[in-house]
Design a protein around this nucleic acid. Structure first.
Lengths: 212, 212
DNA sequence: CGCCCCTTTGAAGCATATCAAACCGCGTGG
DNA sequence: CCACGCGGTTTGATATGCTTCAAAGGGGCG
């Protein structure tokens, strides 16, 4: 174990196959040459950009099955584990044998980023948190029940909020009967009314909850 | 002229070569099949997403020379002229003969969107406006003097602000002696201190201007 | 030539941030 | 194994940055 990373080695050719990261361990850093691509086996990963004064923006969360680290030249973000995670690692070379697949992946990332721009630019705190929950619910593949693999602060930095505001928005949604917050650490969320939550996320004006 | 669009026709095979759009004319709409790709000849274009209640987010501005409309399946934004503009149009087919070039373009768009996410999520009004000016200054290729090809409202919707806040931020920068606002319509901006503006944009903490 | 839209500025309001404090669980080290 | 401490979550009170509402001047476009 070095720096929070455990390395697994293939018995066939000695190449590294997987690595285990503990919470907050760095997988790659912004500006490093993009020599490897990664896939989440278990746990979760955040990709982060920092401003010089420490302000922090999470661009994406990667969940089991997700591929990341495909970039033109150097990594544009720092990637860190949000919890104990196992990650597959591969050289980037073989990826570029299959250009159409890579294009597909990059395009999907672009669409995600463009939706993120709309979210950050024009949605309020409750809408942001709701969008986040609906997205996680879809991607975690366990309909209406989700165990969040990241902290309130990670969520806040993803949504351009503070961790207190994320907590307060969740409290509003709970008090409105739209979801339940369970578990000793408050990370188990049960969605009771998916329809209404989806409307909130889409800002259709059907409901209009307020923080205060 | 139909719907604010004038069509030019090739004398060779009858295919449309260019179109002229007046201010606010739609070039393509979100959700339409992405059958054509475009290049700005003159003028400027914004790509926009709308929320059901009318809130509006500008994703990008396209300036002369820029190519846009390359998408997987359907357009993810509506594209509109911000002023009288001339646009080249081509069928998408020939583009996909050159996959690496397309990948390059999509990747550049992705990097722009990721930077936009950081801007919207974690920078304040003055930083946002400064980032915008530095970006336009670079892309318009007329060092330190720029004629903005879009309204304050377009800028505001790009930066996740209101048009009043954009005006106020520009006034602060002008009163600080960092730039001049000229021309009868206030769209001619002269950057006096590029170094300081760049630092403001990067949030290095060197200067700290306030709106009020 | 006229009108509508754009820009600017001021005053008041509101959404979210900031500061503060308590509780709790988990991991760590003794 | 247990105690301790640190980080995470929650809630309250206050502060602030940006929005909202309002109004006036001016220019470009039809």
């Amino acid at each position: 174990v070095i720096d929070g990373v455990t390395r697994g080695v293939s018995t066939i050719n000695g190449a590294t196959l997987w690595r285990k990261y503990r919470r907050d361990a760095e997988i790659f850093g912004e500006g490093e040459p993009a020599n490897s691509v990664y896939q989440v086996m278990s746990g979760a990963v955040r990709t982060v950009k920092l401003l010089p004064d420490g302000r922090r923006q999470v661009a994406t969360f990667l969940l089991p099955g997700d591929i990341f680290g495909i970039e033109r030249d150097v990594y544009q973000h720092t990637a860190e584990a949000t919890m104990k995670s196992t990650i597959w690692v591969a050289g980037r070379s073989k990826l570029f044998a299959e250009l159409p697949d890579v294009l597909e992946l990059v395009t999907r990332n672009l669409e995600h980023a463009e939706n993120h721009v709309l979210l950050l630019g024009r949605q309020n705190a409750i809408e942001k948190v709701t969008v986040f929950l609906i997205e996680m619910d879809r991607r975690l593949q366990s309909p209406n029940v989700l165990t969040l693999p990241m902290s309130r602060r990670d969520i806040a930095d993803y949504l351009g909020l503070t961790h207190e505001t994320v907590t307060r928005a969740l409290a509003v949604l709970r008090r409105s009967g739209l979801l339940g917050i369970n578990g000793k650490t408050g990370r188990e969320i049960v969605l009771y009314h998916r329809r209404e939550l989806t409307e909130l996320a889409g800002a259709t004006g059907a409901l209009d909850l307020k923080l205060v």
